[in-house]
Amino acid sequence: MILKVLKYSFSDLIRSRWSYVYLAFYLVLGFVLLFLNDNLSKAVITLMNIVVVLTPMIGTIFGIMYFYNSREFTELLLAQPIRRRTIFLGQYLGVALSLSLSLVLGLGIPFTIYGITQSSQIWDFATLLISGTFLTFIFTGLSIYIGLLNTNKIKGFGYAILMWLFFAVIYDGIFLISLVIFDDYPLDKFTLFASFLNPIDLSRIMILLKLDISALLGYTGALFQKFFGTSQGLIVAFAMLLVWTIGPTILMIRKSSRKDF
């Protein structure tokens, strides 16, 4: 049953013009960066900087937009013999999968043509796609959760954008300020803990650990490396991203089972 709901949400989104715009954007980005740039590492880093900001944003916007636009569809499904959990999980997966597909195809096609499948950097690239997919799922889930909490469309949209802004920009600001203020204290544990709480940071750390470029790791990344070592750090970051994916999903299902429609 969940596959049926997923199928309808997915095909609904695949028909939408915006999915193609999103796909085309990554295609252009991938081709331009790879073929106008002779350094593969640099291309991956540039892509990373775009992916860690853009995938959460698109996940947030599409998630909240789809939630409000498919109210009719949801109400129709709620009166059918289907579990609530199935409806919301199916719709969530439909949105997140179609966005992830745009990302994977949009960057995957140029990379395949470029011939990265034969190169040793295939795993760097794969890490990039994996974190982008994680971020898509995490932020789609969070924004649907926000949608469930807010019947008012404008409010819901506002909160969702704020949520993205918080993780993408504000969080780093607060973090830096607190580092400056508490300069006199040992901050290692605090910093490590703080990096767990932001999926965007986690993704960045994961990619940079994989690329093994110490210069770009930054304070949090360097701590990660010092604390866990490169390979264990990768696993920890991956595990935390998984927690970040499951968390909002559980919140979403719990809220949906207690809501009036």
Binding site: D12, R15, E72, F73, E75, A79, I82, R84
Partner: peptide
């Protein structure tokens, strides 16, 4: 529970459906 809804048909007050179907 949910499967009791197999025995119910519901006609909602406002006929709202997904627009692009």
């Amino acid at each position: 529970t949910w499967d009791y809804r197999k025995q119910i048909s519901y006609l909602p007050q406002i006929a709202r459906f997904p627009d692009n179907l």
